[in-house]
Design a protein around this nucleic acid. Structure first.
Lengths: 376, 376
DNA sequence: TACGCGCATGAATCAGGCA
DNA sequence: ATGCCTGATTCATGCGCGT
């Protein structure tokens, strides 16, 4: 079967006559027009990854001189916040009509757009159930050192109203999270490796989402056989995961290139083997604690003195978690330890000690105390 | 000294005449009126923890003064959102006026209000720099098992405009985070234990923020001696941490109970020793040294050869501090480095190396030596 | 085959001072 | 406002290549 044969091309009028849902198909059209053609209260869940309206300045180069490939596509350009808001409210209103009364909607965004989206969601009568933070395990750094590393994106999960009886598979989520309630912060790597769709070595879509993210969303809020609509289908992550999990899907996408890639991808996706489900859970990472966190949380006070085990070196703890030696040298626990010893590297956690009850103890002991106090 | 003596009671008119800032004081008044009484462009940072209000019922009134007793139908919802938006825009506008042009504002909230706050921030011309996620190490579980555990709150950090030159202590944040860039997701325990203010065993304020959170905010975005304004002061976490870190603070709070608790708490807070307050400085803060100065002072001799770390490029030092490549290209250390690499820019200090004791060392090391020898 | 090294790259609102 | 010069700045991951 040809790749494009499953892509339904519809004019708005033709689509309006089609009563049955275009299940497991891609509708190549503008999302507002395409949603208008769908019956009211017909889908169980909507997952939407709308344009973020990034407002990027000039070129950005890495410290090594290489160029950052930014999102410059026309579909992300809006003239003003007012235009973006109008667009947002239009598609959210249509989504509200199409969604079943007990269905829910998910929208993902970044600080560029998510506040406007969230306000529109509330204004249109949706009832926000959670905001979810996708913590990126491997975000792009802030190359110029001008801000905090932008290391997360935000998802909004909402029902059609306060009293809607939505689907939430509490047990599935708890099982997935090692028998602890699933929290509102999720950690996943960004989409890369073999999962990232490429054509001639170039990424097909600039913002392809990881399947693990959609997997959790669909597992949490839909039942097998449910219909999931994605009005900004892109390269079809939602469709691929829905097929794997035995859910029906409808994708709406304007760009022919994206439609073709999505169609091919979903064709190749295989419904999930039950045994594979268990192996999808990533082991919980060993929590890391930065030395500065101990200062912030008053386990050590700025001004406190540290020494090495043999009291050959001394250093004072400063407000930002750096150390200052009486000789004038400063640096992190690792760097200053290395400097004072003339060594290329040093594990500051075991090198530096603090005095308690007349005895020297490594600062690593404080880290263990902190972990015990904060980890469930 | 009595607890309340430091609390300045001001009517709006009386305050309007007061030109000097009420530094290190609590102003017991409505925050919008109190901010109106402050001079324009007078504070370096604002930290705001506004009421969340929505969907909790209770103290919500319509613009006409009538009471909203239940937020049930869509119309009431819209009505209350509009009211909350008006309040939000009013205090954010006043904050914009009071803030110095190169100052920044922080606002914290949850999904109940943060989307409305964020949209207002953008609409008022603030430029969002980051949104920050406070991941709670020990959140309250979702008892009914109907949603994800609400385990985070969101902070928005914004400047007064796109081109503002705000304070961001990059090196301090990197040091605090074990020599990795500080990310946009921060983990802290919720406020409890001895830090939590209680009276007769009952918590004084329902949403007291942890000091560790304010510690990081103030350390990241202010300098010692800066003025920090908190228009929703509550029990004064911002003031207590500001005092500890050697920053001035101004607190605005309507409730006398909170003012009293905050005043007592801040009285008891101890400022850090000045030396402990010192933090890691960015190279930007160091005095500049022109490469030619090193040649003048015979740290390098004209005619000496430099290479990059991988010995792919070579250049000769000339008498005026410019470099000449064997291929004929010439220029400053930066310009020639960029030219030879075909890069848009280059930091010559770290790109070019000289040979000493059989090893390559960056010429930046010579600059450090020069600085140590010449700085008092 | 295994391991190490080099290189590429990801939704990014990414510089500042002076002439 | 514009242009020019100086010079500060990156983390995790995957893939290809060489030993």
């Amino acid at each position: 079967m040809g790749v494009m044969e499953k892509v339904a091309r519809r004019t708005r009028d033709a689509a309006a006559q089609a009563t049955p849902l275009p299940l497991d198909q891609i509708v190549m059209a503008d999302c507002i027009a395409a949603m208008r053609a769908l019956p009211a209260k017909s889908v169980d869940m909507i997952f939407a990854d709308p344009p973020y309206n990034l407002q990027l300045g000039g070129d950005l180069n890495r410290p090594d001189g290489s160029h950052v490939d930014a999102v410059t596509d026309a579909w992300d350009k809006f003239d003003s916040f007012a235009h973006y808001d109008a667009f947002t409210r239009a598609w959210l209103a249509e989504a509200h009509r199409v969604l079943k009364d007990d269905g829910t909607i998910w929208v993902i965004g970044s600080y560029h757009n998510i506040f406007r989206v969230g306000a529109a969601v509330q204004d249109l009568g949706y009832w926000i159930l959670n905001d979810i933070v996708w913590r990126k395990a491997n975000p792009m750094p802030n190359f110029k050192g001008t801000r905090f590393t932008n290391a997360h994106e935000t998802l909004i999960w909402a029902s059609k109203g306060e009293k809607a009886r939505y689907t939430f598979n509490y047990r599935s989520m708890k099982t997935l999270n090692d028998e602890l309630q699933m929290r509102s912060d999720w950690e996943f790597p960004i989409c890369g490796g073999g999962e990232r769709l490429k054509r001639d070595g170039v990424k097909v879509h600039p913002t392809q989402k990881p399947e693990a993210l959609l997997y959790r969303v669909l597992l949490a809020c839909t039942k097998p056989g449910d219909v999931v609509l994605d009005p900004f289908f892109g390269t079809g992550t939602t469709g691929a995961v829905a097929k794997r999990l035995g859910r029906h899907w409808i994708g709406i996408e304007r760009e022919a290139d994206y439609c073709a890639a999505a169609c091919q991808r979903i064709e190749a996706a295989l419904p999930l083997d039950e045994r594979a489900l268990a192996t999808m859970q990533s082991p919980k990472a060993q929590p890391k604690v930065a030395f500065g966190v101990l200062v912030e949380n008053a386990y050590l006070t700025p001004g406190a003195m540290l020494t090495d085990a043999k009291r050959r070196h001394r250093a004072m703890v400063r407000a930002d978690g750096s150390l200052a030696s009486p000789c004038g040298a400063t640096g992190s626990i690792h760097k200053l330890g290395a400097t004072l010893q003339g060594a290329p590297a040093c594990n500051g956690w075991t090198f530096w000690h603090y005095e308690a009850d007349g005895a020297l103890r490594p600062i690593d002991a404080l880290r263990q105390t902190y972990l015990l106090a904060t980890q469930p």
